[in-house]
């Protein structure tokens, strides 16, 4: 039994601090969402109150959805994120399996080679990446972004998945081998299902920076047809600076998918972080 005196500020004091910090974290987001449903007069007259019958207005959303091609931006973000995510998870898991399962001469060296990518941001290679994309005629394509984000996500994915794959029972794999399963079957049928929780964690970690990235869409795929929602929101808000309804609505629309995903997966994500750090 742990006595209550271990609480440094007293129970109420601790909750007060935590609630104040919660307000600091959620306040700005709530403020934007709340005001996006108001008329212009409501936004400026009473920014801190909820929309009511007098101030409720969807004009901002009408402007955004009417002019901003936001749905297409969503589609682009979805294609790019899903494509890179699939590649990172599949290729990453395969490489992690090879590095954690087999002993071969270059094993350690390849591990270090991949670890370089954890430390060095891929953005430092931007000049050469753009040259390469121009030469390959991949500028303003989804594929360019997918390739870049796959390279960006792989090192950490291989690292985390490798840690987890080492924990998969050796007996199980050997039993599979005695039953005559090929190494591919062992990987896809035995090992991959067992590390599914780790794959989910890596998925969330990989997805967020891709969805949120501004740098590469801005440089490699700024065209209207491939604009992601992050870049789209950036450009759109830049053009509509004075139209506060539209700006707030655009921000809310850009926040929404991240918010929904986060609330769905936060337990998984937090468990992943805490499990990884304990290791």
């Amino acid at each position: 039994m742990i006595p209550a005196r271990t609480w440094p500020l007293g129970r109420a004091g601790v909750h007060l601090v935590l609630i104040l910090y919660t307000a600091l974290c959620l306040g700005p987001v709530l403020l934007v969402v709340m005001n996006s449903f108001k008329s212009r007069a409501g936004i400026f007259g009473a920014p801190l109150s909820l929309p009511n019958a007098a101030t409720f207005d969807l004009i901002g959303y009408k402007t955004v959805l009417g002019q901003g091609a936001f749905l297409r931006y969503f589609g682009n973000s979805l294609i790019v994120t899903a494509g890179s995510l699939a590649a990172v998870l599949l290729f990453g898991a395969m490489a992690a399996f090879a590095l954690s399962e087999y002993r071969f001469r270059a094993n350690r060296l390849l591990g270090l080679f991949l670890a370089l990518g954890i430390m060095v941001p891929i953005r430092l290679g931007t000049v050469a990446i753009l040259n390469m994309m121009v030469a390959a005629r991949l500028v303003n394509t989804h594929l360019a972004l997918i390739l870049i984000y796959t390279a960006q996500g792989l090192p950490i994915a291989v690292f985390i998945l490798g840690e987890f794959m080492q924990g998969v029972s050796k007996d199980l794999k050997d039993a599979g081998r005695i039953d005559g399963l090929s190494e591919y079957t062992i990987f896809f049928r035995l090992v991959l299902p067992l590390v599914r929780p780790a794959v989910a964690t890596v998925a969330v970690f990989t997805m967020i920076p891709i969805w949120n990235d501004l740098w590469f869409p801005l440089i490699v795929a700024p065209g209207e047809a491939t604009k992601t929602v992050t870049l789209g929101a950036q450009v759109f808000i830049g053009q509509f600076v004075t139209n506060w309804n539209a700006v707030l609505a655009a921000l809310t629309l850009a926040v929404l998918p991240v918010l929904v995903l986060y609330l769905l997966f936060s337990r998984q994500l937090i468990r992943g972080i805490t499990a990884g750090a304990v290791k």
Binding site: A87, F113, G117, G125, A128, N131, L147, A151, Q152, L154
Partner: peptide, 12 residues
Amino acid sequence: VYTALMIVPLAD
């Protein structure tokens, strides 16, 4: 993918 889009551009 990693070599082509991370290492080569960095070296380049």
